[in-house]
Design a protein around this nucleic acid. Structure first.
Lengths: 142, 142
DNA sequence: TCAACAGTTTAGAATAAATATAATATATTA
DNA sequence: TAATATATTATATTTATTCTAAACTGTTGA
């Protein structure tokens, strides 16, 4: 199956018609060999550099949100001024480098399963995310 | 030691002079029997209702940030439109109820220690936070 | 007592992310 | 292809947060 067809399917499943702009967004997000982290602003910049088509902010926001809702993208819980998204939707965790403002994946196997002994009546856990904030370790320099 | 003196000490240690406004903020944040979660907007509203003194948004932001820097408050990593803060600075975790937009503390003892096997050269872990998102469990109704 | 000053408070302006709007353009369908 | 339903876009709006500059407070030292 050609890439374009995969994208059209992803879009349709997300309740979106496949348009030039949306397919371009798919190319950037899902073509990559590796998964990656991005902000809306970064995504728009990548598209601008790669493509000969123009995509407005609104379209990018709408498309990203539709993919999130469908589970093709994940939002990473961070207290940043802008939202960070992840094309890796498998269960995994993150380091956040506070000095370089960069996210690093932590594979699920690298974290023992997080076992929460407490429950809330009438509620179930939908997701468990671990954020480990990291900084330079100057002690290790000596 | 009277409460006011504790607050004055907290303020001085945070590099702030004890002023009427700042002491009022301390009263709201640190007088409570229990620790609690709040947004800046909520904090301002509480002060408005309780106090006969006026406190501007800027003063609240500045004071909260100074307390954060000193470790008297913690920011909770959430992708919300506004920042959530916690007066409980002990090591603990959170449920986030996505339907009611409410935070619930999870005591450290209720989570087995999160053991991250991966390391990043030259970096050390400063904090590890677990956010468990919860939703209604309709299955349990039957 | 007062002048000088360092730090505060405040209202309002500025910034920036995210969302809404409404006119125009495009895709789908029958 | 015509009719319709949905998308795209530029622009305006909203909202949290930060910045600014002027007025204020309290302390110190002559």
């Amino acid at each position: 199956m050609a890439y374009a067809e995969q994208y059209i399917e992803k879009l349709r499943k997300s309740g979106l018609r496949p348009t030039k702009q949306r397919i371009k967004i798919c190319e950037v997000l899902f073509d990559a060999e590796k998964t990656f982290h991005f902000t809306i602003k970064e995504l728009v910049k990548i598209i601008e550099n790669q493509a000969n088509i123009k995509v407005s902010l609104a379209t990018v926001y709408n498309t990203v949100h539709a993919f999130m809702k469908k589970g093709y993208l994940k939002e990473i819980p961070l207290n940043a001024s802008q939202s960070y998204y992840d094309t890796n939707v498998t269960h995994h965790h993150h380091f956040f480098d506070e000095e370089e403002n960069k996210l690093i994946d932590i594979h699920q196997d690298d974290v023992d399963e997080v076992n929460i002994k407490r429950t809330i009546p009438g509620k179930k856990i939908r997701s468990v995310e671990v954020i480990a904030k990291i900084v330079s370790d100057n002690q290790s320099q000596k």
